[in-house]
Design a protein around this nucleic acid. Structure first.
Lengths: 111, 111
DNA sequence: TTGTTAATTAACTATTATGTTATTCAACTA
DNA sequence: TAGTTGAATAACATAATAGTTAATTAACAA
């Protein structure tokens, strides 16, 4: 079996669940949050959220920080970096959309 | 529940399995291949490979092309594009590695 | 202490995924 | 036509996921 340089599969798998992708998206847009604050991300119980956070953590997608009783979660930059690097290294498959990448980068720069 | 703009989760999920990630990696590095040619990607039966290909196809990650009895598979550029765009749009989390992105792009340009 | 808050772990259930072998289907080939 | 090839589907077993409620753990507050 062929393997990829970095263990990317577990990260992809972690982001493959809609609830977990929503958690990561939220942590990136709104910054670090406690497990309790993330409760409203989906209509599921607290233990369910807790398990999703565990999966994300074990895949190296998020990190945990302890603040008294609270567990604060934030996105692990290296994880995003790894995925970004992979996609970019394979960019010949975006077929002629290298321009579009430049566009995206430009628009980000200005915001 | 929060949702992401594009249905990225199924693509991440599809790439989250090591065998499927290997298939996609192979199709990108070696070009389009038939189901049979992909047989050696993992030590599993042909039907198992066939099912993985179906999952990838349903997630929009690969496309199928029919050539007589053969089914030729190739990577769907839009899928990679979608993932790349997402990561790039979130690039503030690569923490100071914007330079590194430039590096990656440069090295790709020359190869 | 005693109680409250925040979150996880335990135990369990239901569903989904992944693998198997056997079968079917379609398209070539002799 | 009869046989072969390439690949998918069918039927099934088992493992992994994702959810639930109940119980536990740890930290703070009265």
């Amino acid at each position: 079996m062929e393997s990829t340089p970095t263990p990317l599969a577990p990260k992809f798998a972690a982001l493959g669940d809609p609830t977990r992708l929503a958690i990561v998206t939220r942590l990136m847009s709104d910054g670090p949050q406690s497990a309790g604050q993330l409760q409203d991300i989906a209509d599921i119980s607290a233990p369910a959220i807790s398990r999703h956070l565990k999966v994300l953590r074990q895949a190296g997608v998020i990190r945990q920080q302890i603040d008294a009783q609270r567990r604060i979660y934030s996105v692990e930059p290296e994880a995003l970096q790894a995925i970004a690097s992979w996609t970019i290294s394979k960019r010949e498959f975006w077929e002629g959309s290298l321009d579009r990448l430049a566009q995206i980068l430009d628009s980000q720069k200005e915001s």
